[in-house]
Design a protein around this nucleic acid. Sequence first.
RNA 1: GGCGCCGUAGCUCAGCGGUAGAGCAGGGGAAUCAUAAUCCCUUGGUCGGUGGUUCAAAUCCGCCCGGCGCUACCA
Length: 516
Amino acid sequence: MAEAERYYVTTPIYYVNDAPHIGHAYTTLACDALARFMRLDGRSVHFLTGTDEHGQKVAKSAAAAGMSPKDFTDKVSQNFRELAKAMNFSNDDFIRTTEERHKKSCQELWRRLKERGEVYLGSYAGWYAVRDEAYYGEEELTLAPNGKRIAPSGAEVEWVEEPSYFFKLSQWGDKLLKFYEDNPQFLAPESRRNEIISFVKSGLRDLSVSRTTFNWGVPVPDDPDHVMYVWLDALTNYITAVGFPDDNAPSYRKFWPADLHMVGKDIARFHMVYWPAFLMAAGLEPPRRVFAHGWWTNEGQKMSKSLGNALEPHAMVAKYGLDQVRYFLLREIPFGNDGDFSHRSMVHRMNGDLANDLGNLAQRVLSMINKNCGEQVPQPGAFTDADKKLLSSAHGLLAKVRPLMAEQAFHRTLEAIWQVVGDGNRYVDEQAPWALKKTDPARMATVLYVLAETVRHVAILVQPVMPHSMAKMLDQLAVPDDARTFSALGDGGTLKPGTKLPKPEGVFPRYVDEAA
RNA sequence: GGCGCCGUAGCUCAGCGGUAGAGCAGGGGAAUCAUAAUCCCUUGGUCGGUGGUUCAAAUCCGCCCGGCGCUACCA
């Protein structure tokens, strides 16, 4: 009781070589909304993001730029910090795999695996594409006219044979299946479940976890010819960030196992199969849940380098507004599914849900208060059944939304809140405070008070998704900074009649397309 | 090929044994506090096809058609 319940949520670490696009922003946004929600709900939160900076491709890009890998990654990892800033992400830490703390952590994890006999030295042979940094199976290759073998990606491959350490993944199939069975919440969303389970059931092969063909990575302890291969290195960041290898560190004891690893569906397997296997093999606890979300398309088209149609977060924010973009991404599609971004649907959401429904509700209420109640919170009289009904729907929101957020159902959370926004608009029309103004000013004051309370609830609950806009809305209700958490919901922080209110200003402008 | 998912109103989806729902879009009306925003009413579907189980099927089973995902060491 004494200590707040903790919540540890992570994004994947992003590959520094990539230019940040909407996919990165989307993953981190989902985590940000969760982190903010949990903080407002009184939990002690650790929200981690960062960059993955090792690997052959990075070394090559650095060389091409005439820089050392270290200088190069210092520079490009900045892109992701800037993205976080531009999107108003509230991460508590930003980890880089080139940091000393991470090297120590990886090496200790390695030692534990080695000690337990989970890692052994063998050799790896196969068709390797340098450009892709990947091995391909014989059957995937095609023969080019010049006799070279070509990977599906179009990259040239060569036969490579190298010594490599292997992780005994083959021993972990049954234990993973049992783990999935005992922890049904671990694999999410449901649609990924079958895929992962059938993958594991089909039989696991040992996993090559070291490389000797390049050296830009974490050196394998006691065998400096090897560096650890991508996934072992990358995944370990999640424990590094909370203090591993010091398992007794207060932060480690507090935050591990993580409550949630948020990932894109392309890297589901690494997080849902390899990572829990690595951890269990090292005698550590697996995370509690991994959620693999879907991808966005742009106006119905898959985003690709060749089409040059990647959605660029900075440009979207500049065009539509930050909170509008945040809202759209979390409201438009059932979280977990793929979704399509289009100008049309974006404008539809920002004008319909934000400007017309919520923005206008706040504006009509605040402006009536401003004009008719002496620019201060009105003094309510006794509540009627209609008043109580609206208030109770606002008061009941948190209980409704908590379980939805616990399963990352952002769209349903917002839908539930907007239900109350709709109730509010209906109530205004039914009560017609503009008519009461002449016939029963005291009743008008009560109606406007009930509405202001409703707006207060909505604004507090929407903060995780649209922090700036809701701060503005709460400012206009003169809600003190210390009364904006979920503990102020219900009767915990009711508006005080007589409180001076500032002049209202629209929070969500309508988007109007320029006439052609 | 194997395993799995999906196909419900124009669009996005919910319903998953008791003879169809929501939001948006479309049509009509009311109101005028408000960012010409809001509110009410309303058109619209033989629930992909087909055979079966059942007193009763979008809802369970078989087959067919259509779409999609996974099938390992690229993030």
